[in-house]
Amino acid sequence: MPAETPVIEMRHVDKHYGALHVLQDINLSVDKGEVVVLIGPSGSGKSTLCRTINRLETIDSGEILIEGEPLPQEGKELAKMRAEIGMVFQSFNLFAHKTILDNVTLGPREVLKTPKDVAEQEAMRLLARVGVEAQAHKVPAQLSGGQQQRVAIARSLAMHPKAMLFDEPTSALDPEMINEVLEVMVELAREGMTMVVVTHEMNFARRVSNRVIFMADGQIVEEGTPDEFFDHPKSLRAKDFLDSIRGH
């Protein structure tokens, strides 16, 4: 059996914001079932990198491949590819004018053309899985941040994604709500979901990630297993960064 094609692959990706070189020659591949954590100081480009994978951010040069196919640049092909990659945002971004249930069924109904009753059954199952089925008929603003983020995860899962991107999913949450979201993510990882996670949650990274990638100033500075990285960081930048987030 030939080596499996990576789910996500980035080759020599570069991106500038004006004079700022936010992504510098990024090379990265994520295999099926792998959980990759992106970590680094703010402004290091980790969120931008995450967002280029479903083209919410464009790139200047290099290529991004999804299961070996180049990421489409526009139109129906791009929409189709985005439907296959889940995305969870820092600020949840639930559709504010729709109920929780409609938030989850919108994608399946509009994109996958799933019949209404089937989509709703599956949505209720997913909402139960993330523990917010009791809120199905409320609107997002009535839910706590932790609940909203779990709904956002359910909304992505309803599309049966090949991979999921998490862009600082717990950074906007009150401390007591972080764990309820992380638990859902841990479970997803255990079930074999391919995940790219931008986060500062070291415990999460240690428990579930296969690989930690440390970025600074638009570059991948070092990468390794979580134990290697957190216990024996090689670069000075990584050591400084870990010291600063550990609070001493």
Binding site: L56, R82, M87, F92, N93, F95, E110, R155
Partner: peptide, 17 residues
């Protein structure tokens, strides 16, 4: 908020939808 459109695009809606 911009995130509303980003979330819609990310579940595969076309820009028009």
């Amino acid at each position: 908020p911009k995130g509303q459109a980003e979330a819609a695009l990310s579940i595969g809606l076309t820009p028009h939808k």
